[in-house]
């Protein structure tokens, strides 16, 4: 049997799906059941975008400030300034936030949201589904 035969056979054997008017009705019913989850997912996605934008702005401002400091002050005074422990702490915190933002992706926003803003919010899809 040649290739063209099996191809013709396949093209002419497309199965017929029985028309089922209840299919879309049932689909709509299931969609309404998960409407709350969809709203929450959309809200979290919007929140994630906002946090990403804020992180970007903070990064740019910090960069500009560091550049300005290096240009305006002699290096000796800059080293003396960052020698203070509080600045080290702030730098460490900034690095942690950047690392979590980069590697944690969307999940990190949910966790940060839970830790810092809404302690009772959910961080996994399983929590939404089992709620």
């Amino acid at each position: 049997m040649k290739d063209i035969d099996i191809e013709d056979l396949l093209r002419n054997s497309k199965p017929v799906v029985k028309d089922d008017p209840t299919f879309l009705l049932e689909t709509r019913r299931r969609m309404r059941d998960v409407e709350g989850i969809k709203d929450e997912v959309d809200r979290q996605r919007g929140y994630g975008r906002t946090v990403l934008l804020i992180t970007l702005i903070i990064g740019m401002v910090t960069g500009i400030m560091v550049a300005a400091t290096l240009l305006l002050f002699p290096m000796d005074s800059v080293f003396a300034f960052i020698g203070e422990w509080k600045l080290y702490l702030a730098l460490a915190a900034a690095i942690v936030v950047v690392v979590i933002t980069i590697f944690g992706r969307d999940r990190s926003f949910l966790v940060l949201n839970k830790l810092l803003v809404f302690p009772h919010s959910k961080t996994t899809m399983e929590e939404y589904l089992t709620d």
């Binding site: 299931r30 969609m31 998960v34 989850i37 996605r45």
Partner: peptide, 18 residues
């Protein structure tokens, strides 16, 4: 097949924002 199709459509609806 219809059950899986409906689950897929619901999953697609939830993710339709993306």
């Amino acid at each position: 097949a219809d059950d899986i199709a409906q689950n897929a459509l619901v999953r697609a609806y939830v993710a339709s924002g993306s």
